[in-house]
Design a protein around this nucleic acid. Structure first.
Lengths: 110, 110
DNA sequence: ATGTCTTCCCTAGACCATCTAGGGCACGCG
DNA sequence: CGCGTGCCCTAGATGGTCTAGGGAAGACAT
């Protein structure tokens, strides 16, 4: 935890989808990749990640398949579906617009 | 509602604090100002705003005082306190770091 | 073989900000 | 008078995230 502040609701799906866009990963690796790519700024708790993965699987955005990790452990690999790619595009767009809108308020208020 | 998408949790406080930094406003005006400054991208529901104002007042970030609006209506004007200004700085910083972190993931993932 | 570390998966319950969907009062205007 | 509108407020549902657990299995040293 520490000061690696909490995620805002709704951003986790986007991050996961984005990271999976580079190819299938298992849960642990997803969390690590987000951590690394954000330069340690973001920390995804497992208690948040797995429910999120389930949700997204139920919605058809990702598909799971059991396999073996690089460390020779049993692991569940998640891959983006076509609907997932569409969803990624949608959420990426929504994020861009939201960030721009908030940025505008922060800049222009006086 | 429409497509004026939902706010992310945690951003409302920041927006309200920022808008109040320009001087006291009543609730309705706060919502309008956010709407205008975001170029209609953000829409604050009253059912979200008033509980938020109440919360922030309890935390000592803002102070309320009854007055009369520009339209000659009874209205509750909210003003930033010193603690509120500190909080604004904190949240503005947190937002900047979060937006940068998410931006980094969106950009660098492959 | 035993113990410990690490990797990896999973779940129940609490938390809490936001949304939905109302209600209410008072001014201004036709 | 009646209606629109400005303005405030609340109860309850929703739902994503966090806390705080638990468990299995490979790796490695003793």
């Amino acid at each position: 935890m520490a000061d690696k502040s909490e995620l805002l609701q709704g951003t986790l799906d986007l991050l996961v989808l984005r990271v999976l866009n580079g190819g299938p990963l298992h849960g642990f690796a997803i969390a690590q990749k987000i951590h690394v790519l954000s330069r340690q700024a973001l920390e995804v708790e497992e208690g948040s990640l797995y429910p999120a993965l389930y949700r997204m699987e139920r919605k058809g955005w990702i598909e799971a398949e059991w396999g073996v990790s690089e460390n020779n452990r049993k692991a569940k690999f998640y891959a983006l579906t076509k609907a997932g790619r569409r969803q990624l595009a949608t959420e990426q767009d929504a994020w861009a617009r939201l960030a721009a809108a908030i940025g505008a308020v922060l800049r222009e208020a006086d």
